[in-house]
Design a protein around this nucleic acid. Sequence first.
DNA 1: CATATCATGAGTGTCAACGATTGTCGGATG
DNA 2: CATCCGACAATCGTTGACACTCATGATATG
Lengths: 220, 220
Amino acid sequence: MAIGASLPGLEKKSLREQALAALRRAITSGELRQGQHLVETELSEMLGISRGTLREALRQLEQEGLASAGPRGRLSVRHLDPKEIRDIFAVRGVLESLAARTLIEQPRRAKAVGELRDALENMDEASGRSLEDRIEADLDFHRLLCRLSGNETLLHQWQSLEGSIRMSIMFAGLERATSNMSVDRHRDIVDAIESGDAVTARETILAHMESASNNLVSED
Amino acid sequence: MAIGASLPGLEKKSLREQALAALRRAITSGELRQGQHLVETELSEMLGISRGTLREALRQLEQEGLASAGPRGRLSVRHLDPKEIRDIFAVRGVLESLAARTLIEQPRRAKAVGELRDALENMDEASGRSLEDRIEADLDFHRLLCRLSGNETLLHQWQSLEGSIRMSIMFAGLERATSNMSVDRHRDIVDAIESGDAVTARETILAHMESASNNLVSED
DNA sequence: CATATCATGAGTGTCAACGATTGTCGGATG
DNA sequence: CATCCGACAATCGTTGACACTCATGATATG
């Protein structure tokens, strides 16, 4: 049997993780609207999994801030108001600033800078494609920054915000999101890291995040 | 009707939350040792709850970083090495710095400063009591700082580190932990916030965290 | 008509028991 | 001694059931 050849992927994740990914996607894509009530029995049927397994996924979803619990454990898709978006981006800003600072303190950061430039490259290529691709490339860059810091806790915390970040972008609508994905602004960050200037790196990132959240919640 | 006055509290938490709290406590108190394998059937029996309910709690524990999954989903109590402790405290540092900065930017921060001074008071009183009480008072102070920032995301992220922080202190042993709980050093933070000096506040907090993690992992 | 009471339904919390899969360990066997 | 085999352990996931709580609407009562 010509095994393996056609096996699409060894990506055998547990059902719980698949369910979690599906739910994340459904929320950040707007398929499930903000405030919408998440009914265990419905969802477990839709996803074709048992309630128990689904509940495990929901717990995680809750901790990622994509769902919030009302009275009596009723979960609904979290609603993000402008203040919360600003708050999320403020936290994100300090996390990524720390990543930059950590990276700068590492003597051999040339390789990391190279990888970041590759990520910039990807963003550039994606700029012609769909908005989703661009968002993906953008988040890839920022996630990579955190990963390269070598601080697992930092990466983990950033990732636990990732869903909320996606939701914020969703919430903002597509035009406003676009202005945050300029390659140039991201290049400034990499330049600052490469030059070893921690203060500038930090200020660049914080400014980037502040303007990003301003764009996302602007009222026009 | 003078009811309720004496009603101690209808704080009926779900079994899942109680289990989670019990597990947290067991880990941060050292009752469950680092690296120890967490067997679902054993734990569910010990806690007197079903496996399903326990599993939900375990997922949460995992996301808090108190347990880590080995191959094929086997969970064990997370092992923290010195680098991880430093990493945790670095993240904690930037989170609390953000809290301080946010607090400073609020025009009416006098009340918050008052509450922080109360917390200092508590730390002072606790300094004569058991080490656990002092740890509690210390963490209360830092958690309060995050809460007063009004940034729910920030508070949430901090709390998701709280278990790891407790573990770090555990891991360090009791003597080394003590030196991190000086009231004076904490007063410096409050003073900086009160004076509205964001830069000093940030530097004070980061220095505090760096020296704290140094103390915790020092090799003597 | 207004109000109090009750039946019903939806949804979550929790449990118990089961099957499937996979890794582990102790032997029996050549 | 190496290897294969079988029992065991443990997790993943499922199913089905029951209790509890709350909202809702119907009904009975004044």
